[in-house]
Design a protein around this nucleic acid. Structure first.
Lengths: 349, 349
DNA sequence: TTGTACGCGTTATCAC
DNA sequence: GTGATAACGCGTACAA
């Protein structure tokens, strides 16, 4: 098969009787080139089907106008929206987005890190895998002055940009919301405690209980591995069958929360009357399940946009302070049927 | 801030008293280099913190070990899973994945196409935007022998790889399923008819009705713009309020199908007894809504994996035939509560 | 089995 | 305002 040869700035130069440098400058809107020449050259480029070669430009500049993204899995509502926000912002600025999934494996995270590095990305956006504890694999980016933005699941011990929500307050508010609905024994579905997000949500939960004089019991706190539907199902069944079952559950994600609702219904436990439930994330399923799931909003797309902006705005000067620059976004309690006991009571009055 | 200089094959060459070419060959496992030397060089590379520069290699080879993905939106379950499948397969083969969203706009699709081209991707995977009719913007890939794989939403008039499901059969089977459940007046929520997927699903719907002697009525076929929740809601309300409402709905996606279920329930119409519903895609919400939504499975992740494989396996020789190579995957009817009238009847007997 | 030399397409520097 | 030249890091044809 015949393959068309590529049109380069040399071809343009020959065609227009300019030097390659002039062509290059014109295409990049260099100020030393007259408007007229720029217009002329750009039109010719368009007509001759010229397309810049990012590889060559990247090699020359030692960076590639590409943002690398390293997350656990794409096919989760939160992550998909996060990437969507990153992509949109990056593209508007003329940047490409490289993605990679760790599947929550430390090993994968390391190797993906390397591959992204090999592409000489302009910056890296990371949401840590469940397993990750060590942070060495990110050092090479720092050494080269490549900005890293950690989103949502961030490290405790690594200086960089961070974009997070206030997980503590969110956890506190979610729990307080259940308390306000009259719950006296509130269980918590907790995620891996070495990850900031889950640890802080739990802290908020604990403080809310304490401040309101409610019991803190080990058997009301379930430590999940992945906060999956199956795990949630099992945990709920066990809780509801126990001698002294909870009358409320604060789950650290929506998936497990929904499983709790469905499990309770199956067991004949009424939600929210006998068991109020609140989740976290505001996934699409939250408004579909019945009763609809109360939850905490999580501005995924916005977090993505901000993360991308951080990289685009990054200048080498702002980076050597060895200090973390943290952006904290607000969240909101979204009260739906799964927790609104009082409303129900009022309706039946 | 001090930035570490990069380690190149020249540094390795100097350090090990080899020529750069030997280093290059060793790192690429060239057969002319002895096992021993390869091992020696690789270990030294590792130790000295050498990392290949994909930009330079890409420039040299005129391609970048990168697969470009061009889709409408990432934050839809089907698309997220598709990308997930692509990414997994690509990464195993040492390829990177560049993503871009068209947001269903023709203009964006064109400009994203160009940007991806500028990065000299190895191959392109595309699911067409809703708007796209013209296909010129893909021509430059063909001219350069860069393989294109169209997935799911594919063009009718463009030779390339295609990975699809049998939408006609799926539409036919879904409709037939409703007929078997005793439905006599079946409505259809149809997507944009210039897109193969929606057109064929509708064709299957029509043929199933015809073959079973059921009425085909214009007012039972609703043409949607985006198959959104809101659109579905409105359409359902209108249908159920009509003089002669349907007793079944086949929706071309799950989002609209779920909205139909929720709308019907709100209006006091029992699902599936008075209105059976079947959707398409098997999104997570399908198994959460109540009654759970019958639907058609859509092997998103597998389609992604196959698409990526197509590009990885592509060799220049297999491409100049001007013929489309189409991969058709099977689907399955997933019968859940929203359509199983008979089961309900049996239960109450 | 290894080395030399060149070029991939671009841009920054220096010169005019 | 424009041109000549070198350099980015790598892979390979050719030579040894």
């Amino acid at each position: 098969m015949k393959i068309k040869k590529e049109v380069t700035i040399y071809d343009l130069a020959k065609e227009l009787n300019y030097s390659p440098s002039t062509i290059s400058r014109a295409l990049n809107n260099h100020k030393s080139i007259s408007k007229k020449t720029i217009k002329l050259i750009k039109e010719a480029a368009e007509e001759m089907g010229y397309r810049p070669n990012n590889l060559a430009a990247g090699l020359r500049n030692n960076k590639s106008n590409t943002i690398g993204v390293l997350i656990s899995r794409i096919n989760r509502p939160f992550m998909a929206s996060l990437i969507s926000g990153i992509e949109e912002t990056a593209r508007k600025a003329g940047y490409n987005v490289l993605i990679s999934q760790s599947n929550d494996k430390y090993e994968n995270e390391i190797s993906n890190c390397n591959t992204l590095y090999d592409s000489r990305i302009t910056g890296l956006i990371v949401s840590l895998s469940m397993e990750t504890v060590e942070m060495e694999h990110f050092q090479k980016f720092v050494d080269k002055g490549i900005p890293i933005v950690f989103v949502d699941r961030v490290p405790d011990n690594f200086n960089s940009y961070k974009v997070v929500i206030d997980n503590y307050t969110a956890g506190y508010s979610a729990t307080k919301h259940l308390i306000e609905q009259g719950c006296k024994r509130i269980a918590h579905f907790a995620g891996a405690q070495h990850r900031n997000v889950y640890r802080e949500r739990k802290k908020g939960y604990l403080d809310a209980l304490r401040e309101h004089g409610l019991p803190i019991e080990d058997n009301l706190m379930v430590n999940f591995k992945t906060l999956s539907f199956e795990e949630g199902n099992k945990a709920t069944k066990k809780l509801l069958k126990s001698a002294n079952p909870p009358d409320g559950i604060f789950s650290a994600n929506d998936t497990a929360a929904v499983s709790a609702i469905m499990c309770a219904k199956k067991m004949g436990v009424e939600v929210p009357e006998q068991l109020a439930v609140i989740g976290f994330n505001d996934d699409p399923i939250a408004s579909i399940v019945q009763p609809s799931l109360s939850t905490v909003s999580h501005p995924a797309s916005k977090m993505g946009a901000i993360s991308a902006k951080r990289i685009l705005d990054h200048s080498i000067n702002t980076y050597d302070t060895g200090v973390s620059e943290v952006t904290v976004l607000g969240t909101e309690i979204i009260a739906r049927d799964s927790s609104l006991k009082r409303t129900k009571v009022l309706e039946s009055e």
